[in-house]
Simulated scan of single mutants.
Amino acid sequence: MRLLVIADPPEDFKIHKDSTYAMLREAARRGWALWLCEAADLRVSQGVVAAQARPFGFTDTQEYRRWFELGTPADMALRDFDAVLMRTDPPFDQQYLYATHLLTLAQWQGARVFNPGQALRDFNEKLAILRFPEFIAPTTVTQRAADLRAFLAEHGDIILKPLDGMGGRGIFRLTRHDPNIGAIIETLTDNGQRTVMAQRYIPAISEGDKRVLLIDGVPVDWCLARIPQPGETRGNLAAGGTGRAQPLSARDREIAAALGPQLAQAGLLLVGLDVIGDFVTEINVTSPTCFQEITQQSGIDVAALFIDALARRIAA
């Protein structure tokens, strides 16, 4: 099996928790031939989508920057691999958008891409929740300060977030009595030039922002509840949250049962739902994480489940 993984530079991987690292480890354990490239290595040559890809292998050390080895780069068509994994981290900026278009073209040429370029474009990680209104807290999307002020006046305690961030960056909690309402709204909307999302604050964040992983529409039986630090609103691990693996609740399973088949039908092999209390707050499709944390605390081999699903998709 020949697998190309489009990812950020491997020297930047935090291998003790990186999910792409876990995927690569499991694929290597099965004897798959692994290749690596970055999104910047994608190109079109004579009408064919190709990449300057390098053979990838593991070394016998876990030392920083020495745990992997890369071979000589070669210009290879994406359709010549058995599968292509898109694992480049957000933000979903203009360059990322261009990469998704190249991935779509590659699919037309016969490549098997996961998650597919079209699905990555269709499912903005913040806006995608609006497809499932019965599972979300009160939400508004706008670039107008007056709309945000009205939403704040109605709900009293809200979360503001940019539409292209990750790891909790740029997220603000705002109450009616905050002295910085105007400054925060002006900053996030770039004085009315940028669209943002506002959601009613969910007090259950104190119990964790749960990452529920869906693999080909089926939920992993345990999730990772990311608990905010004292005095912090954000549970994201990148913002200092503590990860606690736990079995899915009945509500988690209800959400997964409703969303999973639709997301899989859209071609999304791997999705990370963010669930706070009873509500879905984000649908992560670009580079969902938390494999290693769930595996280490639950004993569920998430990477093996994912590679099993990938192998089934390839065979199909």
Rank of each mutant, 00 (worst) to 15 (best):
L237Q: 08
P228L: 15
D252C: 09
S249Y: 02
A258M: 06
L263M: 12
I255A: 00
T233S: 07
A256S: 06
A239R: 10
Q265A: 15
G272Q: 03
Q246K: 13
E232K: 08
Q265R: 15
D252K: 02
R226N: 04
I276T: 09
R253T: 11
L263K: 10
N236F: 12
A245E: 02
G235W: 04
Q229C: 12
A239C: 12
G267V: 13
L237D: 09
G240Q: 00
I255D: 02
P247C: 05
A245D: 02
A266V: 13
Q265W: 14
Q262P: 05
G241T: 09
G260F: 03
R234H: 11
I276R: 01
A258D: 05
A239T: 11
A266D: 14
Q262M: 12
L269Y: 08
L270V: 14
L273R: 03
A245K: 01
V275G: 02
D274A: 06
P261Q: 11
A264E: 06
Q229A: 15
P230W: 15
A250R: 14
A225D: 08
V275H: 00
Q265E: 15
I255V: 03
A238D: 00
P228A: 13
A245P: 00
A225I: 06
S249K: 04
A257E: 05
L263N: 12
G231E: 04
G272K: 02
V275K: 00
R226D: 12
N236W: 10
A256Y: 05
E232D: 06
G260T: 07
A250F: 14
P261D: 13
Q246H: 02
G235C: 01
G243V: 02
G231L: 08
T233Q: 07
A257R: 12
T233A: 10
G277C: 11
G267W: 13
E254A: 01
N236M: 04
R226L: 11
L273H: 09
L248R: 05
A257K: 14
L268N: 05
Q262Y: 07
P247R: 06
T233M: 13
L224F: 00
N236D: 08
V271Y: 07
G267Q: 10
C223S: 12
L224P: 00
V275Q: 01
L270M: 10
C223T: 11
G260E: 09
P261F: 07
A225E: 09
R226K: 14
L269I: 14
G277D: 04
Q246F: 07
D274F: 01
Q265N: 13
L259I: 10
R244G: 01
Q262T: 07
Q246E: 08
G260R: 12
L269Q: 12
G277Y: 01
L248W: 03
T242W: 09
Q229G: 10
C223E: 05
L248Q: 04
E254V: 01
Q262W: 05
E254Y: 00
A225C: 01
L269W: 13
L259G: 01
